[in-house]
Simulated assay, not measured.
Amino acid sequence: MGLRPGEKIERLGMIRLVKVTTEPPRRLTDDLDYGFAETEREGFPYGHPLHSPTEFVKFFCNSHKDCTPDTVITRLEYEFAADTASGSG
């Protein structure tokens, strides 16, 4: 999302990319089982307004310049990696 002047990066840890795919946001509304699972992965559990695939796609497209439900986007799936500062992981 970017940093404002004077803000610093807050490192949360190392991640490992598990999968990189491309797909349009509308995939979430075309396949609702997939859509509800994805909105949960994005941090919007049952009961949250953005748990709805339709609402999430609207939110996503409105927050990304020139994005429409048919725009092909890159989806990154990741997991937190073990602490690599000590050389392990």
Rank of each mutant, 00 (worst) to 15 (best):
T22W: 05
M1G: 11
Y34F: 15
L28W: 03
E40Y: 09
D30M: 14
M1I: 07
I15R: 08
G13L: 04
E42M: 14
I15H: 02
I9D: 11
E77C: 05
I73D: 02
S52N: 14
G13D: 02
T29W: 00
G47S: 09
G13A: 10
I73G: 00
H64Y: 05
C67K: 07
C67V: 02
S88V: 12
E7H: 07
P49R: 10
L12V: 15
I73Q: 13
L12N: 05
E40C: 06
G43H: 05
M14H: 07
T22L: 01
K19N: 13
R4F: 11
P45L: 02
R11Q: 12
S88I: 03
P49H: 06
I73T: 15
L32G: 02
F60K: 10
P49D: 00
P49T: 04
R75L: 03
F44R: 11
G87Q: 12
K19F: 01
G6H: 04
E79M: 04
G13V: 04
Y34W: 13
R16N: 11
D66R: 09
S63V: 07
S52K: 07
R4Q: 15
A81W: 06
V72F: 00
T68M: 00
G89A: 15
E77R: 09
C61R: 14
G6L: 01
P45C: 04
V20A: 08
P45E: 05
E23N: 14
G43A: 13
E79C: 02
F59A: 12
L32C: 00
R26W: 05
L12F: 09
F80Q: 12
F80E: 11
L76P: 01
F56L: 05
M14T: 11
G87N: 04
F36I: 11
G47M: 13
K65H: 13
P53G: 01
E55I: 02
E79R: 12
T39S: 08
T68S: 06
A37F: 03
G13R: 12
A37Y: 09
Y34P: 00
E79P: 06
D83R: 14
A85E: 04
R75Q: 15
H48K: 05
K8L: 03
R16G: 03
F80I: 14
P45I: 09
N62H: 14
E10N: 06
V72R: 05
S86L: 10
F80T: 11
F36L: 10
G43C: 09
S52F: 04
L76C: 14
T74H: 03
V72N: 03
H64G: 00
R27T: 10
L12W: 01
T84P: 12
L76K: 11
V20H: 02
E7R: 09
